[in-house]
């Protein structure tokens, strides 16, 4: 479910930087929420030169998560993601706006299961998620 879209200018990041950011986002998301690593998706979308960026700024972090986490967790998550993106890309933090949108967990099926609400993940769900990831 956690899905982070990074809007970036064309040819602004190397493959190594993108991979490093994806790894950092995975570490940060799982560190803040306890979610399984295999559930964290990160994609990069380049804005072609001369085109208007989707959110009006060259860089933008657009996240989508399960609803129900405390506000301070969400704020910390976004701050940590922004800092990591800045550290790896060299783009100043103030030039990387972002947001995290939320939807009820029950609206998503992943790994063959409807997602549990944050905090409702039982050991059987973690086991099933791990088994699906190992397939």
């Amino acid at each position: 479910m956690p899905y982070y879209r990074c809007i970036i200018p064309q040819d602004s990041l190397t493959f190594e930087q993108r991979q490093e950011i994806a790894l950092a986002f995975t570490d940060i998301h799982c560190g803040n929420t306890g979610a399984p690593r295999s559930f964290v998706s990160v994609s990069f979308f380049e804005t072609p030169e001369g085109e208007q960026p989707e959110f009006g700024t060259p860089y933008y972090l657009d996240g989508g998560n399960r609803a129900g986490r405390p506000e301070e967790v969400k704020q910390q998550l976004l701050a940590d993601l922004t800092q990591a993106f800045s550290d790896i890309s060299g783009v100043p933090v103030e030039q990387i706006p972002g947001r995290i949108r939320e939807n009820p967990a029950s609206w998503t099926m992943e790994g063959g299961f409807v997602l549990p609400e944050p905090g409702q993940e039982g050991p059987e769900w973690y086991a099933a998620a791990a088994a699906a990831a190992a397939d």
Partner: peptide, 12 residues
């Protein structure tokens, strides 16, 4: 090279 899952290239 632009999509990742769990930090690795994604097929999802």
């Amino acid at each position: 090279g632009f999509g990742f899952r769990g930090g690795a290239l994604s097929t999802t």
